[in-house]
């Protein structure tokens, strides 16, 4: 395959970036998108040009480290992670535009690499169950109805890649936040902190500078794990309850 790549290059957090166009040939349909970039990078190194910086680690779609805006879609045209996108999803001769996630709370560090530490701070603000090591009761002490366990699991699948923010026209991180609120809120263990959790996590979400949600649904469509919109409804319901109970 031959491709034309328009790739965002930016030397550092404060540098001004721009698109640079590269031609690549001998790309195989079985390559992953990132392997295609590896091939390009090897060539750039041989030519004495600094390779393109992009994040990836597990390369099997679970760590959430990778994430590129590919021709206008977060993680590309398939609903998967960038590392699990294969070149067979593109056609020979295509022009592909590659940009970093764009959101002010995700500042660009270099080229296609962004800083997503805002997500960690949202979790730190309440995305946990306060149980110290060693103080846990016997695991079978609290049975969990299967429906709740299953829904908790669906929400817990979030890999924190940031595609939801990248795809959202409002650059909102509501799906990310709601996934955690729902995961913990569906479980009996999560009940004691349920309503304080949603309030503090949302406050942190807003403080990071993410936009508000307007239920457009681009996030779920881009989410490699397909986390559904209904988790946001659960977050909303929990916040409403928090409001009613004076939090």
């Amino acid at each position: 395959m031959k491709l034309t790549l328009k790739i965002w290059r930016q030397d550092g957090p404060n540098a001004k970036g721009d698109f640079v166009t590269y031609q690549v040939d001998d790309i195989l349909p079985d390559m992953s998108f990132l392997e295609m970039l590896d091939v390009l990078n090897e060539r750039l190194i041989a030519e004495g040009t600094e390779p393109i910086a992009f994040d990836s680690d597990c390369r099997e779609g679970i760590c959430g480290m990778c994430g590129l805006m590919i021709s206008g879609y977060a993680h590309g045209p398939k609903q998967t992670t960038t590392c699990q996108l294969h070149m067979r999803s593109f056609s020979d001769g295509e022009t592909i535009t590659i940009e970093p996630w764009r959101a002010d709370p995700f500042p660009v560090i270099r080229d296609l690499v962004v800083d997503r530490s805002a997500f960690d701070r949202i979790i730190a603000s309440g995305g946990f169950i306060s149980v110290n090591t060693g103080s846990a009761p016997e695991a079978h002490a609290a049975p969990v109805p299967k429906e709740n366990a299953d829904r908790a699991f669906v929400a817990a699948e979030c890999i924190g890649c940031g595609a939801c923010v990248a795809a959202c026209p409002n650059a909102s991180a509501m799906l990310f936040t709601a996934a955690k609120v729902t995961h913990l809120g569906e479980l009996p263990q999560g009940q004691p902190e349920r309503y304080s959790r949603v309030v503090s996590m949302l406050n942190q979400h807003d403080a990071e500078g993410f936009g508000g949600c307007t239920n457009i649904g681009e996030c779920s469509a881009a989410c490699p794990k397909g986390i559904p919109q209904d988790v946001i409804s659960t977050l909303n319901a929990d916040l409403r309850h928090a409001l009613r109970t004076g939090r």
């Binding site: 946990f128 149980v131 060693g134 846990a136 695991a139 049975p143 969990v144 299967k146 366990a149 699991f153």
Partner: peptide, 22 residues
Amino acid sequence: ANIIDQCVAQGVPFAREYGGLL
């Protein structure tokens, strides 16, 4: 065995049976 207790208390959504047990 303590690990499972700890993880369940943290909210790790292990697979469960219809009876609600692990």
